[in-house]
Design a protein around this nucleic acid. Sequence first.
DNA 1: AAGAGGCCCTGATAGC
DNA 2: TGCTATCAGGGCCTCT
Length: 288
Amino acid sequence: MPELPEVEIVKQSLAKNIKGKKIIKVSVRNRNLRFKVKSSFEYYLKNKYISNISRFSKYLLIELENQSFCIIHLGMSGTIHIVKNKKNYLFSNTSFYSSPNLPKKHNHIEFFFKDLRMIYNDPRRFGFFQLISNKNNLDKKFQNYGPEPFDKKFNSKYVTKYFESKNKSIKNFLIDQKFVSGIGNIYASEILYLSRIHPLKAAKKLNKSQCKKLILNSKKILLNAIKKGGSTIRDFKNTTGNTGHFQKEFQVYGRNNLNCKRPGCFGKIYKINQSNRSTFLCKKCQKK
DNA sequence: AAGAGGCCCTGATAGC
DNA sequence: TGCTATCAGGGCCTCT
């Protein structure tokens, strides 16, 4: 479930906790993630320094001293935990499960640093780790991704041009990473509600003012979610194992059969199915 | 070519 | 209590 805001929260924590540090050791307990973790993975990372931590879309980018990258995608249930070490941890197995918030199962990958460990947990294994040899190949990896909502390229001209003669629904475009990067199923519903646009509306039928609203509200929702520490529906936890708070501010997501929160609307929130994913909307104040 | 739907996976929950 | 069915959804893939 991690979308851009949740990944951003994790990124900030990694920047604080592991940037500049040397990876002493990596251990992989389960290689069968979304893509198989290669057997050379641990060896490649061993003794390398981390020169930078960044994020693109829903990806965490760990840059290494030799300008190569280890990229992480959290899939839907991936979480990263930072556990501070006790003394002599390298020689003891007992400290591993000592952190109260660390799950007992599905801890697939562990990075060891001098003072802490970074542990990747992912029950459903939709997430993945991938090594990328240089910046050029990183750009190649993301060349088919659209701009992030905060990018200057995500502007009125781009959106209206993109939507020309497109029959696909606006909701399916918001979660389409080729159009815009970082928005997932939850925030798509919230953005459309705030913009008063019906999720089933064909993209080409949006007028200029609606496109502008969409751009503005995408930024607004995501920034606010980052400010609140992301959203926790089921799985998302920050690196200390705590939940985010933006879910308390959801206007439509998960509010099936409840009243519309918009003052003076008195409509009801419906859950519909779009391409096998749930969409939430108020049929009264979101117009086709 | 655009767009829809299937698949990967586990855990939580509902219903009998 | 214990079984089965359903749902959750990111990204890649296949099919029409």
